[in-house]
Nucleic acid binder design. Sequence first.
DNA 1: CGAAATGTTGAGCACATTCAAAGACCGTGG
DNA 2: CCACGGTCTTTGAATGTGCTCAACATTTCG
Lengths: 252, 252
Amino acid sequence: MTSIGKPLRLASLQDVACDTCHLNTLCLPGDLASEKVTELKEIIQPLARLARHEVLYYQGAELDNLYTVRSGSLKQVTTTETGEYLVTALFLPGELIGLDAIADEHYPGSVVALETSSVCALPFKPLEALCAQRLELCLRLHRSLSQEIHNERLRLRLLLRRTAEGRVACFLTALSERFQRRGYSPYRFHLSLSRADLGSYLGLTEETVGRALMRCQEQGLVTVRGREIRILDMPNLARLAHASGRRKAQGG
Amino acid sequence: MTSIGKPLRLASLQDVACDTCHLNTLCLPGDLASEKVTELKEIIQPLARLARHEVLYYQGAELDNLYTVRSGSLKQVTTTETGEYLVTALFLPGELIGLDAIADEHYPGSVVALETSSVCALPFKPLEALCAQRLELCLRLHRSLSQEIHNERLRLRLLLRRTAEGRVACFLTALSERFQRRGYSPYRFHLSLSRADLGSYLGLTEETVGRALMRCQEQGLVTVRGREIRILDMPNLARLAHASGRRKAQGG
DNA sequence: CGAAATGTTGAGCACATTCAAAGACCGTGG
DNA sequence: CCACGGTCTTTGAATGTGCTCAACATTTCG
C-alpha cells in the first residue's frame, strides 16, 4: 500500500549553483545565456533535502513554488472527490514539479519523495514577474508546459489501448529513456515506485503489474529482481511497448 | 471509420469582435480589461470557417497559429510512429487549439472539423511578443496551459481504471458540463464524434462504446438516438462516472 | 435510388480483476 | 546475529469484462 508521509521539514539547505549543475540543460535555465541565468539564480531558493516518504507539499495547498528535482525522485498523488487515490505523476531529476498548479493556484496533488531527494524551489510570483522582463524565460516556461500537455495526452491515450504487458513495457522504455537523457544507465535502474504505485500510475492492480513484469522476464526482455530492473532486449521491449494495443493499427 | 479530410481552404473571412463575443470569458481575453483586449485584437486574424471534415492543420506542420473555437467542434487526431491512429482531443467553443504544439513548434496532431465550425487564429509569434509586454496575457496563457495539463492527467488516469460503462459516463458528464459552461443545454446535446472516434478517444472499440451507451439507456440514465443524447438522470450518471473504477477506493 | 459510411447485435475467447494466502524483504530491537 | 513485525511481492483459481470477427441494420449522401 502506498502512503503519504509526514510534513516536510526543510533541512540541510545548500547554495544553488545552476551554472555548475549538470542538469541545467534539462532544467528551466535550459539553453539560456549564462547572464540570464544569473537573474534566475537570484530567485531560486536553496536546495531542500527530503527523506523517503517526506512530503514536499499537500494537495490543496496554495501554490507558492515550482520545484525542480535535483536528485532522487518523487511521486504526485491525487485524491479525487470520490476518495479515489491516484498516482498522477513521477518526477525525475531535471523535471519541473507544480506546473499543473498554476491554473487555479493550488496544488492538485500531494508530492512525496520516493527516496532521499533534493529539489530547488522556484518562488512562483517572482518567477512570473521575471517572465515579464525576460521573454526567453517566458517562452521556456511555455515550452515546458506545452511539452507536458503533449506528453500526457499521447502517453495516456496510448496506455488506454494497451494490455497490462504493453503498459508495463511502455513504462519501462519511457523510464529508460528518461534515465538515459539524465546520464544514468538506460539498461539498469531502480524502480522507485512500488508495485501498487505502479499499478495506480498505469491503471492496473498490483498483482497484474507483477505478473506483467514476470511475463516480460520470461520472454527474456528484462530481469526483474524486486525493484531492480535490467533491460536485456531493448529492441523487443520497445516493440512490445509500441506494437499497438490489441487491435491492428488503423489508417487515417 | 474516422477520416481526415481535405486541406483547409480559408473561406468567408469575417471581422473579429472579442468584446462582443459571448465566449470571451472562456477564451484567452478572459477577464482582461478591455483596453488590453484591444491589443490582443490587433493580432487576431479574421474568422476562418470550416466545413465538416475540413482540416485546420496537419500533424507535423510548423506551428504558426493557436486557434480558439468560435462555433462548432473539432477533433485532434495523432498518428504515432507505429501507425496507430488516436483521437487525442475534442475542442468546443471557447477552447484553445494548439497548446500542445508550443513545445517543439510543430503540431503534434491533425485537427479536423467535426461539423461546420469557425475559429479565430492567434498568430503565435506576435502573441508571444505581446506576452513580453503584457504580463497579464502571459499569466493567462500560463493558466490555460497548466489547466490543460491538470485536466489531461486526472481525466485520463481516471479513465484508465474504469470499465467501458464508467468511461462513457465520464465522457458524457464531462461533456455535459462543458456544454453548460458554454451556455448550451447540459441535458440534451449532439455527439459530434462517431462511435469509432469516441472509442479511440476513450480507449475502447466502437462496438463496446455502443453497448455501453445502450446499457446506460437501459438503466434509464440517458436516451440515445444515434448521436442525439438526452440525459435523464444526471445524479446517477454522475455516480456511475465517479463511483470509482472497479475496485474500492483506497485511503492515502 | 443505390453506395458507402455508420451503427447494432451475437458468440467465443483472451485477459485483467478479485479474493485469499503464502512467500520474500526490510529495518528494529533483543 | 537472529527473531520479529511490518510492508511489499508473488502465486493460484474463479469470475467478469472487453475484444474480435462477422453478419446485419440503419443512416447519410451523391
